[in-house]
């Protein structure tokens, strides 16, 4: 049995939860997938989890779980693990998942593999093979957890595929747990959403991404994005310099994307960046340095000055479109 610790914020499911249910359906040798849902007034989300492939949803509904806080969530997750005794536990490798996962694994004394991008069952031993990037993405490591159960992993959002929803039947059960005031061992003073309207670049089919080489001017890239019906993205250097939103950052500490088209303009292609975009179907890179590593992951590389090529490209594309 595989247990998925789902993530929701403000009653909205994080898509990684559905991706993990999709993957778990493939992996579960006994064909059984259970989803754990924690929050306040979230019971309604159970239906979505069932429709995406969960055989059973266990939920805990309590005011203390309304906003994510490590200890109450860890307490509930450990109770669910002890009750269900899963072979495997999967958690999304989001900020919340990577805050919660290690705490749970330490408490129940089992291994935790971080930020996995590939999961499979060893045909001989039946063990879960958990593959993940390390050393800034330079190295891939396959990790096993032979003598402790459950085998636990946090899994990077955007790399597994959710199943198409279908009307299914599943059991929905309340987790038997009670909380004490002392479980809220930190006090949340204030939570501010970062740019509410910020687009979710992981959902875009076309991403126009700029780096430090844009010299701080993203206006031509914005125009290019408009023409191609895409969204703006950026390297961390551009985000750190304040030229793009944090939510638009692609890479190891940003988002993992796999659009149909990724145009990298003035981005050197550090492994921490390419880790987040190398699954793109078509990558076009423009960089003035012929030795820039971004060219190693690009389908089409253009050596040249972005400040001159991008405006010309915009003009060329507009011409093509208007001649239709």
């Amino acid at each position: 049995m595989i247990l998925i610790i789902c993530e929701q914020r403000d009653g909205i499911l994080h898509k990684v939860s559905l991706e993990l249910i999709g993957k778990a359906r493939e992996l579960a040798t006994d064909n059984r997938v259970v989803a754990l849902l924690l929050g306040h007034k979230i019971e309604g989300l159970a239906r979505t989890l069932v429709d995406h492939g969960a055989d059973k949803v266990i939920f805990a509904d309590d005011e203390i779980l309304a906003q994510y806080m490590t200890e109450p969530y860890a307490k509930a997750a450990c109770a669910a693990i002890r009750q269900e005794n899963p072979e495997i536990v999967l958690i999304g490798a989001t900020y919340i998942g990577r805050d919660l996962g290690p705490r749970i694994a330490a408490r129940i004394k089992t291994g935790l593999t971080a930020d996995c991008t590939f999961l499979e069952i060893d045909a001989e031993t039946g063990e879960l093979l958990m593959t993940r990037p390390a050393f800034g993405g330079n190295l891939m490591a396959t990790i096993v957890c032979p003598n402790h159960r459950p085998q636990m992993a946090t899994v990077r959002p955007g790399v597994m595929l959710a199943a198409e929803p279908a009307a299914r039947n599943g059991e929905v059960a309340r987790l038997d747990i009670s909380f004490e005031a002392a479980d809220a061992n930190i006090e949340i003073l204030e939570t501010t959403k970062i740019s509410k309207e910020a687009v979710d670049i992981t959902k875009a089919n076309v991403l126009i991404s700029g780096g430090r080489g844009m010299g701080g001017d993203f206006s031509d890239l914005r125009r290019l994005a408009e023409i191609l019906g895409g969204e703006l993205a950026a390297s961390r250097a551009a985000v750190d310099a304040g030229h793009a939103e944090k939510a638009a950052q692609v890479g190891q500490t940003g988002k993992t994307v796999r659009p149909d088209l990724y145009i990298a303009a003035g981005i050197s292609g550090a492994v921490q960046h390419t880790a987040g975009m190398e699954e793109s179907a078509l990558t076009i890179a423009i960089n003035k340095d012929p030795a820039a590593p971004i060219f190693d992951v690009a389908d089409i590389g253009i050596v040249g000055n972005v400040a001159r090529i991008v405006p010309k490209l915009n003009a060329g594309l507009l011409e093509v479109i208007s001649n239709r």
Binding site: L112, M140, I143, P290, I300, G301, V303
Partner: peptide
């Protein structure tokens, strides 16, 4: 509890074509 079963360098994606041409 965990063991590294194996590790290997990340395979480079099949390299594309780099053009050094006029704008």
């Amino acid at each position: 509890p965990t063991q590294v079963r194996k590790s290997y360098p990340k395979a480079a994606k099949g390299q594309g074509i780099v053009h050094e041409v006029s704008e």
